[in-house]
Design a protein around this nucleic acid. Structure first.
Lengths: 152, 152
DNA sequence: TTTCGTGCAAAAGTTTTGCAGTCTA
DNA sequence: TAGACTGCAAAACTTTTGCACGAAA
């Protein structure tokens, strides 16, 4: 779901997809296109298994491996993104105080920080009818100094 | 890691832990205490496997199952939290535009929304030396109307 | 003593990989 | 046709569960 609703046409998405495949040297295969289209039209942030089950009727020979591989490929190209996960293993922290996260996309180090101004900031009014919001957190992603240097 | 640094003493954490166990009817076992202490003193958001490996020297008979079970129990009590994960399966989305996420902790529905005011807001200055921040995202958690009603 | 927790082992669930045949460019 | 992609099968990795013994209250 999305507030406000999408404005772009599906055909625009396909063009972006084909363009991105070409410039990355990726072949435009039937399976790849269908996985992409299924995700582009979905508004519920589906998992690999869900995409697989939705496509199974249309593409009975499709395998789950291909879905995993395709999602991983498209993510590397920046065409799609994984929601809210850092790595395969779950990571924990002791809940002492409310705080925010800054994550290095290369070494996956997580920095906690405070941001009072954000905590005090009012939420967008479209969200007022959604339900009860319990937590409000900022997640920043980037490349830390150590990793920038390593990469030259 | 954390900006700014922690202020509380480890002994305070232990008291909170013991209090929470008592009021939840959980026994204060050796393993449970050690897993908790290990996480409370860690500043790197470790996974279950990492906590296990750190404790193995001190508690050679500890099993990984116990670490998983303990983390899960403590999370249910609200003493600790999982970082950045929604569910066990990764979930994807098509990257059309920058946006933020509102997640129902019960049904796991994810709502995308725009928040221009947040996007324009300056970052805390402590972060200016960290490296290169590429993305800045708000993640809200709560209970949606549908789920509030279901639960009464 | 009673109940809960742990360790062991096995299973379940998620994702990745090697390989040989197939398809795209 | 060459190289990339797919499907199959198997493996790897992460997490959960049943059970019997051991430990906490």
């Amino acid at each position: 779901m999305r507030y406000p609703n999408h404005t772009k046409e599906p055909s625009d998405h396909l063009q972006v997809f084909e363009q991105a495949c070409k410039s990355a040297g990726l072949k435009i295969t039937h399976q790849r296109t269908e996985v992409f289209k299924e995700l582009a039209k979905a508004d519920d942030h589906p998992s690999a298994e869900i995409i697989y089950s939705r496509l199974k009727k249309k593409l009975p020979t499709l395998s789950i491996d291909t879905v995993y591989r395709t999602l991983s490929t498209l993510e590397k190209q920046g065409l799609i993104s994984k929601v809210q996960t850092v790595e395969s293993q779950a990571r924990y922290e002791f809940n002492n105080e409310h705080h925010h996260h800054l994550i290095c996309d290369n070494c996956h180090e997580i920095i906690d920080f405070d941001w009072q101004a954000f905590d005090d900031y009012p939420l967008p009014k479209e969200l007022s009818n959604w339900g009860h919001i319990k937590e409000k957190k900022a997640i920043l992603h980037g490349l830390c100094h150590k990793c920038s240097e390593k990469k030259g």
